[in-house]
């Protein structure tokens, strides 16, 4: 909605200088250091606050996610990174007592605008969850479900094409092409997670959110998903929440460090892991807590 929000104008020049941003002027006495803003943002978050009943889970977070980048979000358990991720396609709407305020834009459109329908939003911003959660239906049905509910195809042949294409992009096609109509729940954990990724890709979203997609997987399956993310980032914008700092270091181009509901630091991944600006970030990546 707001093509030129006040914050954009205010912070864009500062983003280029990479200076620390002082948020104390908003009365919260906190700072996000590094580089949270960008001129080519796909999604922009401004002053996001999230409450579960009275408990505040996210404090005044502002962050841009660039087109076709992999943005990693790291931080200790309960720091709000998953909550933040779920705000990006309004998955928090399904939680009864969750209250969101602030501004989140996708291509400069406010996704929390009261006229914004969540259905098309989620078609544009897909999500992959921590635990593989294929529908208890066939592999084919799993991938075809999204295109079907959105009415993306009119003929069976088109649907077949989308299913094959999505499974190929998720590098699962060769393993399942002979048993497309057997249950998706019969696959191994890693295959199930790739099936979930294929299911998300099938709707051809612009942004893919991944909430610790590898935490339930073994190292080999994890390596395959990480490879996949690198490939996917050519076509999609990816935001990934992860507990593994190695994973963040391997797959992402920028990293955001969350701590107790606050966004502490955002920088290029290499910078975060080699030369963090904030002492909390440094403490976390050197393993002093987390």
């Amino acid at each position: 909605m707001n093509s030129k929000s006040g914050y954009n104008r205010l912070f864009d020049p500062m983003a280029e200088t990479g200076q620390a941003l002082d948020f104390s002027q908003h009365g919260l006495g906190q700072k996000t250091v590094g580089n949270p803003f960008s001129v080519k943002a796909k999604m922009s978050v401004r002053n996001l606050n999230v409450y579960y009943d009275d408990k505040q889970a996210i404090h005044d977070v502002s962050l841009d996610i660039n087109r076709n980048e992999v943005m990693a979000m790291i931080g200790p358990s309960g720091c709000g990174k998953s909550t933040f991720l779920r705000c990006l396609n309004r998955m928090n709407d399904t939680i009864e007592n969750c209250n969101v305020n602030g501004e989140v834009t996708l291509d400069e459109q406010d996704i929390y605008h009261k006229k914004q329908d969540v259905v098309p939003l989620r078609a544009r911003v897909g999500i992959v969850f921590q635990k593989p959660n294929p529908f208890p239906k066939s592999i084919y049905e799993n991938v075809a479900y999204g295109p079907k509910v959105h009415g993306l195809v009119s003929r069976r042949a088109q649907l077949d094409e989308i299913v094959e294409d999505s499974l190929r992009k998720a590098s699962l096609w060769d393993e399942v092409k002979d048993r497309l109509f057997s249950p998706g729940t019969g696959l191994s954990g890693g295959q199930q997670q790739r099936l979930c990724i294929a299911r998300t890709i099938a709707v051809s979203p612009e942004v893919i959110l991944m909430d610790e997609p590898c935490s339930a997987l073994d190292p080999i399956a994890t390596a395959r998903i990480e490879e996949l993310m690198a490939e996917l980032s050519q076509n999609f914008t990816i935001a990934i929440v992860t507990h593994s700092m190695q994973q963040a270091a391997r797959v992402s181009s920028r990293t955001a460090y969350f701590h107790m509901g606050r966004l502490i630091e955002v920088n290029d991944t290499r910078r975060v892991f080699t030369n963090p600006e904030h002492e909390l970030t440094e403490a976390y990546i050197t393993g002093r807590f987390g």
Binding site: T94, R122, A123, N133, F135, Y145, G146
Partner: peptide, 21 residues
Amino acid sequence: PSSIRDAAYGLGASKMQVVLH
């Protein structure tokens, strides 16, 4: 399981579709 609901909502299914499908 709520994971099934999440999966369907995450794909952009409407509430009625989540319930019926």
